[in-house]
Design a protein around this nucleic acid. Structure first.
Lengths: 201, 201
DNA sequence: AGTACCATCCCCACAAATGAGGATTATGAT
DNA sequence: ATCATAATCCTCATTTGTGGGGATGGTACT
């Protein structure tokens, strides 16, 4: 793999080998970009950044959960001169999108990918503006139960607390997320990896 | 692309070019299988089946919606001697899984894919046993509203029917699907492409 | 010491959903 | 013609959830 400094160097962190290979194959013929490394493992990201010095880190956010809404860039310790780009299979929520300089999907064709990568502003500084109120651990726990279809009474009994406490937690969850409906909360929980499809029904 | 009758011939119907390329690349080195064609378009499936005569049709079920639970094999008119295999990005519901002779995911590596393909029974006859009660059009409509977080009253007003009717529809939905909770119904609706993430919240 | 937040608990009034009955009309298939 | 089903409407009783107030003790940071 030869180093060509005219081309932007791309590092991909993606759990699926199939998608990695497809991504590499699409990038192969693309002008101006060069695929330098891939890993399915978040823990190797530091090592790969140091050894490959990519210009762009493409990262599948489903690989980790973001209950605690710290900045992805700072959490993964990605230098600010490198662009941070998401690669997703389906829809992700706004907060996650806002963390990235661009969002690619597996359904993008080569042109779309190149256009999105070209559109990255070089002054890439994730603003950390996302000052959303975080849910507390207890609130996340209660939310998990709510979206699994448990009633307040059941949740109370499971956690050995009063039903009033459960209701209070739910009020705070609704206030913080701004989401009133159970279906909306279900989607929130799915998108934030608080639960998986299998947990429900 | 040479014809090698010792190898099982695979036709892929997959909307994502990235995934198609990755799949082809993984199959390339696999022993006993040969990638013969791909398309992102369901409507071309007939044409491709006739011209390529694959042994295995790999199909991403997200490409179409299955409100009406007819057999996928018969709906797409796939000859019974061809194996029908799903390729999915995430979890899909049991009914859809049951329609296929095998279910691959994008996270599978080459070994897993080959193992799953090897595991296909040659007497592949989708049993059509899935005799689940279908939801009627009206019920699907009401379900869509429910998982968007609308109250019975709102649904009634939207459809110019009595709230009692809405409640009756919901009772029938619960009876037919066996799913009591709104979160479970939300997942059902997502998995059956009755709604998308964007519809909610 | 003050502030902020968390987790816990309570009250009240009202809205909404559930569960178990029942009913009518219309349509389409055997 | 009979049967099944969809779609509509209804009652009654009960359970759950919502929205608006509170309150207390604890922890953690400044």
């Amino acid at each position: 793999m030869q180093v060509d400094r005219a081309k932007k160097r791309i590092l991909l962190i993606e759990p699926s080998l199939m998608v990695s290979k497809g991504f590499a194959s699409l990038l192969d013929d693309a002008i101006g970009y060069q695929f330098v490394a891939t890993s399915s493992n978040v823990s190797r990201i530091q090592e790969l950044i140091v050894s490959n010095r990519p210009d762009i880190v493409v990262f599948n956010p489903s690989i980790m959960s973001f209950q605690h809404r710290t900045s992805i860039r700072s959490f993964m310790n990605i230098p600010s001169e490198m662009a941070l780009v998401a690669l997703v299979y389906t829809f992700v929520d706004e907060w996650i999108m806002a963390q990235f300089d661009a969002v690619l999907t597996v359904n993008d064709d080569q042109t779309q990918i190149v256009n999105k990568l070209n559109g990255i502003k070089v002054t890439a500084n994730s603003s950390d503006k996302a000052e959303n109120e975080e849910l507390s651990d207890r609130e996340n726990e209660i939310l998990g139960c709510v979206v699994k279809g448990m009633t307040n009474k059941e949740i109370a009994e499971k956690h050995f607390i009063s039903i009033h406490t459960v209701i209070t937690h739910r009020k705070n969850i609704v206030r913080k997320t701004g989401i009133k409906s159970v279906s909306g909360l279900t989607v929130y929980a799915l998108l934030n990896n608080l639960i998986t499809y299998e947990d429900i029904e």
